[in-house]
Design a protein around this nucleic acid. Structure first.
Length: 404
DNA sequence: AGGTATTCACATGAAACTATTCTCTGAGTTAGG
DNA sequence: TAACTCAGAGAATAGTTTCATGTGAATACCTGT
């Protein structure tokens, strides 16, 4: 047994590795050359340049769909800016915050707290009144003269969760600061989200705008090429893999992140299966695996109530197609009493169903059945193999069986 | 027949409530001088 | 008297519940032919 394992490891080491540098395929990898975004980089650089003369640049609003290189470009540009600034000893500070990160920067309080942390002041995660944190921030930031460029990634998430109060305060804060000045860079992939903003916030946040169009298949392919040359040892990619990968991602509104993930997972699969090459067939497997992992992860990390709800949905859907919210809810109540769980209200379950729909695990469409009311028509949103997996997990987690 | 009005079964929104986690404050307690 | 402890007050937040209002189209109900 021991020897078997030993030789396994030895073989493993002998094998020529597929990856040279796996990090290059991670979405936060910052290559020193960014392809197909020259124009946007140029615009950004122009907008931010006044910083170097000690003038506050306009606020900038950036939008484009997911995986179009927004974050990457902004990080790259500000990085360059910082390099120049620190060479010339100019007082510039760049802070990047991703508003989607739970528990870190998704509410007003947490953002200000996080900013303070960037300035070296530790702030408790709770317990303090919000305005006290604001005051602290105020005095901290105004202590010495500098320009702060604050990048808020995925601002739409922040506004959806916490309202535009924070943005309003931040845009207004400049007039009250004596020394420091703040410039906001908002990044969003929701094009219509600015409509829901307070008009004052909207106009001051988007003094300047930069748009990131989706990549086309060709561009994605060259991006993949670039990353692949970093990430892989030569000759591990089979003919046509990059092409297919690019085509696949281009189909989904030019999302480069997807393409990179697909490529990475394919290679991981190949490596694990002991192949020396990444074949085209691996791409399909990888696509499957990504989807499955995503779904299963969602299920196992959600609380019991969600699981019972999903259990009910699957149970109902496997009986007959075209299931409605009411059916689900009564089933749900039944299963709740079986498991000894206190059932949630229908209002809540309705939201849970909507959430599962968002996650793509089920498909729920609001339809009107005329005289017979308005409800959601619910169906399963993933393929059968995954459903079977889900069934297994759920019945184990909940201790319910599928035949009642 | 053609046109309105109803009506159903929830959807969708907003506000209020609950439980949890955390800080801060100040009264009471302790130990040392 | 200074240092320490510990309960209670206040905050922020997530997850709900409660209450209120909205809604699309299949039917019921008219109306006039």
């Amino acid at each position: 047994m021991k020897e078997g394992l030993g030789s396994f490891f030895e073989k493993y080491l002998d094998k020529k590795p597929i990856f040279k540098n796996k990090l290059a395929l991670q979405s936060n990898f910052l290559p020193d050359q960014i392809l197909h975004r020259d124009e946007q980089i140029h615009q950004l650089a122009n907008m931010l340049a006044p910083t170097l003369r000690g003038e506050k640049p306009s606020n900038i609003f950036i939008y484009g769909q997911t995986g179009t290189g927004k974050t990457l470009t902004v990080k790259y540009t500000t990085q360059q800016l910082m390099d120049t600034a620190s060479q010339k000893k100019l007082p510039v500070k760049v802070i990047y915050l991703n508003c989607k990160l739970k528990k870190l920067a998704d509410t007003e309080y947490r953002i200000v707290a996080q900013l303070l942390r960037e300035y070296g002041r530790n702030v408790p995660p709770t317990g303090l009144p919000t305005d006290e944190v604001y005051h602290l921030f105020f005095s901290t930031i105004d202590k010495d003269k500098h320009i702060l460029i604050l990048i808020l990634d995925e601002v739409d998430q922040l506004v959806g969760r916490a309202g535009d109060e924070l943005l309003y305060n931040l845009t207004r804060i400049n007039s009250e600061l004596k020394n420091a000045q703040i410039t906001l860079i908002g990044i969003s992939n929701d094009l219509v989200f600015t409509d829901s903003l307070d008009p004052r916030v909207k106009s001051s946040l988007s003094e300047e705008e930069v748009v990131f169009p989706p990549y086309n298949a060709e561009q994605i392919q060259s991006i993949l090429q670039q990353r692949a040359s970093f990430a892989f040892n030569p000759d591990v990619l089979a003919e046509g893999v990059l092409e297919k990968c690019a085509a696949f991602a281009a189909r989904e509104h030019g999302d480069a992140r997807r393409a990179l993930e697909l490529l990475r997972v394919s290679a991981e699969l190949a490596e694990r299966q002991g192949d020396v090459k990444v074949s085209i067939a691996k791409l399909d497997q990888a696509e499957d695996k990504i989807e499955r992992d995503r779904v299963l992860d969602v299920i196992t990390t959600h609380p019991k109530q969600y699981q019972v709800a999903l259990f009910s949905i699957i149970a109902a859907c496997s009986q007959k197609p075209g299931v409605f919210t009411g059916d689900i809810y009564s089933l749900y109540e039944k299963y709740c009493s079986q498991t000894g769980l206190r059932p949630l209200t229908q209002r809540r379950v309705s939201d849970i169903i909507a959430e599962f729909d968002m996650l793509g695990i089920i498909s729920a469409k609001v339809i009107s059945k005329g005289r017979y009311g308005r409800t959601r028509e619910i169906g399963i949103g993933v393929n059968d193999a995954i459903v079977e997996k889900i069934k297994g997990i759920l019945s184990e987690e909940l201790g319910l069986s599928w035949n009642s």
